[in-house]
Amino acid sequence: MLGKIGDTKGEIIIKLGLKNNEVRIVPFDSEWNNEFLNVKQEIQSVLEIDGNRIEHIGSTAIEKISAKPIIDILLGVDDLHKIDKEMEKNLRKIGFYRLRVERTNEVVFAKFTNEKFEVKTHFIHAVSFKEELWTNLIFFRDYLNEHEVEKKAYANIKEDYLRQNNSPNINEYTNFKTEFVKKIFAKRLF
């Protein structure tokens, strides 16, 4: 079951969510950015953080590209080692829970559709502000938004993976895209 964002009072409802290890892509939805902006305000209200430290990333931030129906949010912090229980508690107030995901230079939080924690709708990727990972992730988003050929190539890679795999999993999907992503990151250095 997908999470529905919005209500029945005339607001547009978008469907977000993936189960653990599920890989599925859906057509671009112009409401993804509005959802990001709503969540950005929520994050700012509980963390008292400048808006320039909260960015929309991932495929839902790339215009007119199919994507997994999950909103990825980049959160720039001064020191990853100082993400404390207070910050975790404040993010829980708006539905984000720290995941036990081991990633270099990144702490990941997720929002779920309900208390069963089966379907994720949003990720917060906390990284060091304006350091390499921060810069690469924003560059990737901006580069694909500005370069139609690479944007189409990225969409094709994702679709090729799903066509080739009867039982896709998130780690294989991510690995399948890695070479392309690194190629785009390398363009930042020139």
Rank of each mutant, 00 (worst) to 15 (best):
G76V: 02
A126R: 01
I70T: 13
Q41L: 14
T60D: 06
D160K: 12
A110W: 01
Y154S: 05
K85L: 14
T104G: 10
D84F: 03
I57H: 02
E63Y: 15
D79I: 04
D78L: 13
E150T: 00
L47V: 02
H125I: 06
Q164N: 12
I138K: 12
V46T: 09
G58D: 05
H125F: 13
E106R: 15
S128C: 14
I49Y: 07
K68S: 08
V127Q: 06
F96I: 02
N34W: 00
H56A: 09
M87G: 02
Y161F: 15
E102C: 08
E86H: 12
E102N: 14
A61W: 01
T113K: 05
G51F: 07
Y143H: 08
L80P: 07
F139D: 05
L75H: 03
N166Y: 13
L75Q: 08
N90V: 01
E118F: 04
E86F: 11
A110R: 08
L162W: 13
Y161H: 11
H81Y: 13
K93S: 11
N90L: 07
F139C: 08
N105V: 03
R103W: 08
I73G: 07
E148L: 14
L74V: 04
F109I: 05
E88V: 10
L162G: 08
S59K: 04
I70R: 06
V46N: 04
K152W: 03
N52M: 00
I157C: 12
F96K: 08
R163Y: 12
V149K: 09
N156H: 09
E146S: 14
L137P: 01
V101A: 14
K130V: 02
E48I: 14
N114Q: 04
K120L: 10
E132K: 15
G58Q: 04
I49P: 07
H56C: 08
E118C: 01
Y143V: 01
I83A: 10
K85H: 13
K151C: 09
E150H: 04
Y97G: 03
N34G: 10
F96W: 04
E86A: 14
E131R: 15
I49A: 06
T113V: 11
R141I: 02
L37P: 12
N90C: 07
S167F: 14
K111F: 10
V101H: 10
W134F: 12
I71G: 12
L144H: 00
F109T: 03
T113N: 00
L99G: 10
I54D: 10
R92D: 09
P69K: 04
D160Y: 11
R163N: 15
R98W: 00
D160E: 15
R92L: 13
R53M: 06
